[in-house]
């Protein structure tokens, strides 16, 4: 059975390929050497350097990034939940249009969304800044929340609604006490996805940002581009990685919980 070993070998090599750069980065964030060509000893000085007053702009960018991520996921959670319910419960021409409208922003290259929003804002004479970034992020996050909540709705046992009505619940009570609690894991998972996508986004933000509205990915990008303070980037990235892993781990627990419940 030669054929059954080849896929496993490819798999193993791909895992190495996937992790080498990340591990390299993490290891080097503790490297004494300024250039990552040699290992000269363990240090935490790059992490300490992040707290230098001269790096205050990094923290400002972080704050802005988090503010944008939290607000855009909050808005997208509402928009996405509403549209997922519309798509799930209605089979009309309007929903067919809605469906295409929701999926297009997910499919087209983010570059196109960025440039078209920039042209739109320029044409309207809107000042670019945190608000335009927020609008752009909500625009792509709402679609992702819709997709996640829609997936949760597909495993939804409709008879539960009838059961609640049967036991004396009005429509509003059904929404509040049955539908929302049942969708909650999906909505939260969608929100977490939005949060990570928003924090992750470079391309769209790059187009719609204005002077003084730098986000963390923009900041990191310019540091990388100009090969400035590479060890600092290693340190930031490592912190970034740890935080993302924690969020992913949490959201995975949520989705696991939801699969257990649906059985």
């Amino acid at each position: 059975m030669k054929s059954s070993r080849l896929p496993a070998i490819v798999f193993a090599l791909v895992i190495v390929f996937l992790y080498v750069p990340i591990l390299f980065l993490v290891v080097n964030s503790f490297n004494e050497a300024r250039f990552s060509s040699t290992w000269t000893g363990f240090t935490l000085k790059w992490y300490a350097a992040l707290f230098n007053p001269q790096n205050r702009d990094l923290w400002e960018a972080t704050q802005r990034t988090l503010l944008i991520a939290v607000s855009s996921s909050a808005v997208s959670m509402i928009l996405g939940t509403l549209s997922a319910c519309a798509l799930h419960w209605y089979r009309t021409k309007l929903q067919r249009l809605n469906y295409g409208m929701i999926y297009l922003p997910v499919i087209i290259p983010d570059l196109l969304m960025g440039i078209s929003l920039l042209l739109f804002f320029v044409a309207l004479g809107v000042t670019l800044g945190t608000v335009t970034i927020l609008i752009a992020h909500i625009t792509f996050c709402a679609s992702f929340v819709t997709v996640v909540v829609l997936g949760r709705l597909q495993g939804f046992d409709e008879s539960v609604i009838a059961a609640a009505r049967d036991l004396g619940a009005t429509r509003w009570v059904v929404i509040r006490r049955v539908i929302l609690p049942l969708l909650a894991p999906g909505i939260v998972a969608g929100g977490l996805l939005s949060f990570t996508l928003s924090v992750d986004d470079y391309v769209i933000t790059f187009f719609v940002t204005g002077p003084g509205s730098t986000t963390l990915p923009l900041k990191i990008y310019s540091m990388v581009k100009h090969s400035r303070e590479l060890p600092l980037i290693n340190a930031i990235s490592t912190i970034f990685l740890v935080v993302t892993f924690l969020i992913v781990w949490w959201s995975q627990n949520l989705t696991r919980d939801q699969t257990v419940r649906s059985h």
């Binding site: 990340i22 980065l25 990552s36 060509s37 990388v224 990685l241 892993f245």
Partner: peptide, 25 residues
């Protein structure tokens, strides 16, 4: 397989840039 996918896009590309850097290891 998924975990690297969740790490920041710019950081992932930056990691390669640092890894392949002319002065790099």
């Amino acid at each position: 397989v998924i975990v690297p996918f969740w790490t920041n896009f710019v950081i992932r590309v930056a990691a390669w840039r640092i890894l392949l850097h002319p002065e790099g290891m």
